[in-house]
Amino acid sequence: MAFPLTAHWAGRSIYDIDPAALARRGIRLLLADLDNTLVPYGVPEPTEQVREWTAALERHGVTLFVLSNNRHPERPGRFSKALGVPFIGHAGKPKTGSFYKAMEQMGRTAEETAIVGDQIFTDILGGRNAGVFTLLVEPIRLAGNPGRYLRYAVEWPFRALTKRRTKPL
């Protein structure tokens, strides 16, 4: 079994993820963390660039599904509704229950599912434990919370290892 704190793939941002490459891998459901993965913390609605990327996913048969640990259900709900995608808020990552619930809701298997996120100890660990393909991106913005800097420092060796092992999608 692979080490659960390394992702299968790493890139700078979601825009480094090629929707066609996901489709070629058989991925039909892309779970996505919200804050600092799709948009910075506090941005209430999708940007035009996120909308265009989501449309590109859809053109290749990949459904985006927001899987957020945000404890305020109105945040992921508002964002997802504006984007026209399903979501689970207060997901409890890295626990796997929300991963399985999303896959069941969308009629997809772990082999057809991937997750993209900016955090090793929630998104990647949870995805690995749920048996899905894991995609690690850099946090959009660390500013504003000293705890984020500390968490990022602790994650750094696992990020470096993932980047070293990453091959094109």
Rank of each mutant, 00 (worst) to 15 (best):
E138F: 11
P139T: 12
L136E: 07
I124V: 15
L142F: 03
P139H: 12
P146H: 10
I115Y: 01
N129R: 15
R141H: 14
N145Q: 13
I140C: 13
G147F: 13
P146M: 09
L142Q: 04
G127V: 03
Y149W: 11
G117T: 01
R148N: 10
V137R: 05
A143T: 15
G117R: 01
A130D: 04
V137Y: 06
L150E: 00
Q119P: 02
G147S: 13
G147E: 13
F121S: 05
G126P: 06
R128L: 01
N129Y: 12
P139V: 10
I124M: 12
G131D: 06
L136H: 08
G126Y: 02
A114E: 04
L125V: 13
L135V: 15
V116F: 02
G131K: 07
R151A: 14
R128F: 03
R148W: 14
T122L: 06
Y149D: 00
A143G: 09
L136S: 03
L150M: 09
G144Q: 08
T113H: 07
T134S: 09
R151V: 14
N145I: 09
L142P: 01
T122P: 01
R151K: 14
L136A: 04
V137Q: 05
L135K: 08
T122I: 01
I124T: 07
R141E: 15
A143N: 14
F133T: 13
F121T: 06
R151N: 14
R151E: 11
T134W: 04
L150V: 13
D118C: 08
T134Q: 07
Y149L: 09
G144K: 05
Y149E: 00
Q119M: 12
D118R: 08
T134K: 03
L125D: 03
I115G: 02
L150P: 00
D123M: 14
F133L: 14
V116Q: 03
I115H: 04
V137C: 10
T113M: 06
Q119Y: 03
I120T: 07
I115M: 08
R148Q: 13
G126N: 08
G127Y: 01
N145V: 12
R148A: 11
I120W: 00
V116E: 02
F121R: 05
N129K: 15
G144Y: 04
F121V: 10
G147R: 14
T113C: 07
D118W: 04
L125F: 12
R148K: 14
G147M: 13
N145H: 14
G144N: 09
I140V: 15
A130W: 00
V116G: 00
T134L: 04
I120K: 03
V132D: 00
A143K: 15
T122G: 01
A143V: 12
G126S: 11
D118P: 05
N145F: 13
V116S: 03
A130L: 06
N145L: 12
Q119S: 12
G126R: 02
L136G: 02
G144R: 07
G117Y: 03
G147N: 14
E138S: 15
P139N: 12
G131E: 04
G117M: 07
L136T: 07
L150R: 01
G127N: 06
G127P: 07
F121K: 09
E138T: 15
E138C: 08
P139Q: 10
I140W: 11
A143M: 11
N145S: 12
Q119A: 11
D123G: 14
T113D: 07
P146A: 07
G126K: 05
L135S: 09
G127C: 08
V116D: 00
T122Y: 01
L135R: 05
G117P: 01
